[in-house]
Design a protein around this nucleic acid. Structure first.
Length: 301
RNA sequence: GCCUUGGUAGCUCAGUCGGUAGAGCAAUAGACUGAAAAUCUAUGUGUCGGCGGUUCGAUUCCACCCCAAGGCA
């Protein structure tokens, strides 16, 4: 009997946080955050990390578990999140990082192959000095199925596939693909269905609220505390877009519009990712009895 | 009032020495296995400001009008 785990996923600004608190109160559950940026300490406003008041007494896991100066990876996330899930009675997964959900859906003992910066640099050099096609040809010689699946311009994934082949001696295509039978948990996944125009309006508004709440100061504090501009954490939305403002290379007005734009683009990618996950039950975001629907749907699955 | 420069895709613009037009961004769809709030892919019919004129044919040349920015009065 697998452990049952509720999950609330979907686009940014679609109302996950509020709904998750209600669900936890009803089920006596605890939140396990599934977000690639809320894991970082000191990044609160820009990541829309739930405040203590918003948490409303519900224990939250997987928040503030990494330093923004350090790189983090999906493997570390999976390892820590699995531990958190084991430690609590009723876990409620909440977040919008599709890759993290995929990682948690893989068999528990599944191990991603560790990366190697040196190997990556060698391949990156080939792409830079020769061509993306030349790099892709290397992969085609070692792992044809993966090469066929990847576009030559998708250099990041082509390099990763070559790296896996070099480090393990086995092609990337031999790895286990996720399926519900292999999943370590019995997932009850939900997402809030919201019209695109409303979602985009909420995103634009949320960005303005973040700025009013001091996002610019938060970004400045990170830089002042030694977080490099090119740090992984600084790639988060709201951070990389505001650095140019602090450096005087862009106006706040332009950066705000750009950040809103980028966030809308991101939300759409999230929707595309979750749309193909057939386990997810989509519920109307403005439904009066959202909580009842989630609990009932969960029990009936 | 006069002069100048503009008015082309949702936005910023290119272009057509006259044969009804194309980039970037946006938008939409999709991909995604140790960076994922990252990264990558596909999709381009718009009274070419308006009304006339010249022409086989005008978004392109000409006249007038409208609008915008700048300059001169």
């Amino acid at each position: 009997m697998k452990k049952m785990i509720y999950g609330l996923v979907g686009a940014t600004a679609s109302g996950k946080t509020g709904a998750s608190i209600a669900l936890c109160h009803a089920l006596q559950g605890e939140v396990v955050c599934m977000d690639s940026m809320q894991i970082y300490r000191g990044m609160d406003i820009g990541t829309a990390k739930p405040t203590l008041a918003e948490q409303d007494g519900i224990p939250h896991h997987m928040l503030d578990v990494a330093e923004p100066t350090e790189a983090f990876s999906v493997t570390e996330y999976a390892r820590m999140a699995h531990a958190a899930i084991q430690s609590i009675q009723t876990p409620v997964l909440v977040g919008g990082t599709g890759l993290y959900l995929q990682a948690l859906s893989l068999p528990l003992d599944f191990g991603f192959t560790k990366g190697d910066d040196t190997v990556r640099a060698v391949y990156q050099k080939i792409a830079d000095e020769q061509s993306n096609e030349a790099l892709h040809a290397l992969l085609d010689a070692r792992d044809p199925p993966t090469a066929a699946r990847l576009h030559p311009n998708d250099v990041r994934r082509v390099i990763r596939a070559l790296e896996v082949y070099d480090l393990t001696g086995r092609p990337f295509s031999a790895q286990v693909m996720p399926s519900s039978e292999d999943a370590p948990y019995d997932f009850r996944l939900f997402a809030l269905d919201m019209p695109r125009d409303i979602l985009y309006q909420r995103i634009d508004q949320r960005v303005l609220t973040m700025l009013k709440d001091g996002l610019l100061d938060e970004v400045k504090a990170l830089l002042d505390n030694g977080v490099p501009e090119n740090a992984q954490a600084m790639q988060g939305l709201g951070y990389k877009e505001l650095v140019p403002v602090l450096k005087g290379e862009s106006t706040l007005k332009d950066a705000t519009a750009y950040l809103q734009q980028r966030t809308r683009n991101y939300a759409k990618r999230q929707l595309i990712w979750f749309r193909r996950d057939t386990r997810i039950i989509w519920l109307p975001w403005d439904s009066k009895n959202l909580l009842e629907q989630m609990i009932l749907s969960g029990e009936n699955q």
